[in-house]
Design a protein around this nucleic acid. Structure first.
Lengths: 229, 229
DNA sequence: CGAGCGATTGAAAAGACTCAACCACCGTGG
DNA sequence: CCACGGTGGTTGAGTCTTTTCAATCGCTCG
């Protein structure tokens, strides 16, 4: 595993380059970024940052998946988002000037680069495209969260699970969805037992296929119907 | 009411000036803004914009209160936010480049100024303070919504109501909270009947005082305890 | 004064949660 | 190589919260 932890990804070839906010960087900017970031390997279930601590920079997820969550009163996690390769993590708190409001933890082995606060803010100041990209990103997420709130408030657990599975398909792209039942329950916002019972129903209805932890969606259309609008 | 509708508020004296994102504007900017906005009077329950329509500018709430909400599958409203005097409304969708994801409607008579899209975007481009203020605002709201989601997912209706009342105290400042039971239920995310029963409990416990529609919080501390962290 | 809408109450049903027990798989150490 | 322990997954039963539906009340506005 040590060799993996030293795996070096140049910013020019990094996935985030293609997908993310850094997509429009020119050669010079890339070179600069290259020199000012630290890439490291994370094991499964490693923490990137904790709620209420102070941001020192942003994380660029090159490979792997990361859950963004918040703990409720009784310590139960509510997963707000699951980030996949190419996403930049943790810039919201940094831009708000407040401590983190959520925690982030890897769901699997991951390669993640760290870009310091000053570095990132300077880039934002000097690169209007990046800046606008970030503003757009923030606004879109705000819209997503309004949807999330409405779903939570008005949909049944069954509907929310169907919705969550559709979201998870995008997170896992062509791979099977691979999440612990507890994490999945904490994403849907329900008890683990309830989640398991509903997965069983979906399986019996032929909507999904389950192998232990792994889960494949068979009938997206039907799931969408269940999920509602 | 016609005279009211012609009430003219200069940008220099507008409440939004003091509170909002425009707080740092210099004389020139204010003069410019003054010339390029349209101020109008809204009656109660008038719509500012509808979900899925396209933004043409932003609204500056000078006087009154506005609910920002989204309709779920069955048409039930989920209130995401209640804006009070001084807030700027509707810039998220404008910045995301997508149609509105929520609707906005006055809860009472209001004075609201409209600033066109180009106008607003130009201001953002030329005024870094405004720009940073907006970025900060977006980030903070994102954090608030993560809290909102977690509350919805994990708290009981009773806890959520307590929490909502505390938020509403801030929205209504020193005035009594004045919302229809239905709106309040749609803010808390519950059925109207459930909301009414819980309000009755709170009244019996001496936490609030109720006069028909109007509601005064008597024991904030206790409510906070009920609301939890 | 009457219509109508919002507020309120009651009763029953449904959905989801909790708790407790049990199972199955996996890696470890003997 | 196998027994062991532990974690995560699963099931069942009972309980509680919340919703739903139906009916009533009461105020306000024509």
């Amino acid at each position: 595993m040590l060799d993996k932890s030293h795996k070096h990804v140049t910013c020019s070839t990094c996935v985030s380059r293609k997908i993310s906010l850094f997509g429009t960087f020119c050669e010079d900017e890339l070179k600069h970024l290259e020199e000012n970031h630290a890439c490291s390997h994370y094991k499964k279930n490693q923490s990137l940052f904790l709620e209420s601590s102070f941001p020192r920079g942003v994380y660029c997820l090159n490979q792997g998946r990361v859950k963004i969550f918040k703990r409720g009163d009784e310590g139960k996690e509510q997963i707000i988002h699951i980030a996949k390769a190419g996403e930049i993590i943790g810039f919201r708190a940094m831009l708000s000037g407040e401590p983190y409001n959520v925690s982030a933890e890897t769901l699997e082995e991951s390669n993640i680069c760290f870009i310091g606060k000053d570095e990132f803010l300077t880039m934002m100041d000097t690169n209007p495209t990046l800046r606008n990209g970030i503003i757009k990103e923030l606004s879109k997420e705000l819209a997503d969260r309004a949807d999330f709130i409405t779903n939570m408030a008005q949909k049944s657990v069954r509907e929310r699970l169907a919705f969550a599975l559709i979201l998870l398909m995008k997170v896992y792209e062509n791979e099977p969805i691979n999440l612990s039942r507890e994490d999945m329950a904490n994403f849907v916002g329900t008890a683990t037992e309830t989640l398991i019972r509903l997965l069983k129903e979906f399986k019996e209805e032929g909507l999904i296929e389950v192998q232990t932890r792994k889960l494949i969606v068979l009938d997206t259309r039907k799931l969408m119907e269940i999920a509602g609008k």
